[in-house]
Amino acid sequence: MNDVRAQSLIGRVMAAASLIVLGACGGGGDVAAPPPEVQRLTIASVVVEEPATGTVYFSHDDHWHGFPTVRTGNSSRYLVHFVKQGRSPDDHDMPPRNEWFTLATRGDHSLPVVIEDPSRARWLGDRLGGTLFGDASGASRMSLRVFRGSTTVWEAPPLNFIVR
C-alpha cells in the first residue's frame, strides 16, 4: 500500500516538475509570438550596390562605410541587399556577398526611402532598390526602412550622400 502511495507521489512530483521546467525555459515569453506561418525577417545591416560601377556601401551598427555620389541633373541606380548576421563593433569589413539577400520573395515588405533634404535629391524605387536623382549640389542624408505592411521591421542609420 505504501509502495502504491509512494509511486503515486513520485508520479505527481515528476509531472509537476516537468511542467515547471517546460514553463520556465520556454524561450523568454513567446506568448505574443507570431503564428508559425509568418517568418520573421532578421536584418543586421544593409548593403547598397551601384551596379554600374560595382561600388558597394554598407551599414554597420550606427554608421555606413562609403557614401553615394550623384551628379547634378543625373541619376544613379542602386540595388539594396540585406544581411542577417551582425558584426562586432570593430569589424568594419564588408559582409561577404554570399550572405546578402533581397526582399524579392517578400511581397508583403516594402523599402521606403526618405531624403532628408528633398530639394537636393529624389529617390524612386521599390523593395529591390531604386534610383537617386541629383537635383542640387551639396550633401544630404537618406533613411532606409523596411516595412512589413505598415510596420517598421528595421531601420538603417542615415546614409550620407553627395550631389556634385
Binding site: 509512494a6 507521489l9 513520485i10 512530483v13 515528476m14 516538475a17 521546467v21 520556465a24 525555459c25
Partner: peptide
C-alpha cells in the same frame, strides 16, 4: 521503507531531469 527508497529515487530522477533540461540561457 521501500516507499522511502522509491521516493528518494524519484526525487533524484526529477533533479537529474531538471538539470538535463534546464534553461539554456547563457
Amino acid at each position: 521503507m521501500r516507499g522511502a527508497t522509491l521516493l528518494k529515487q524519484g526525487v533524484r530522477l526529477v533533479a537529474a531531469s531538471c538539470l538535463l533540461t534546464a534553461c539554456e540561457h547563457p
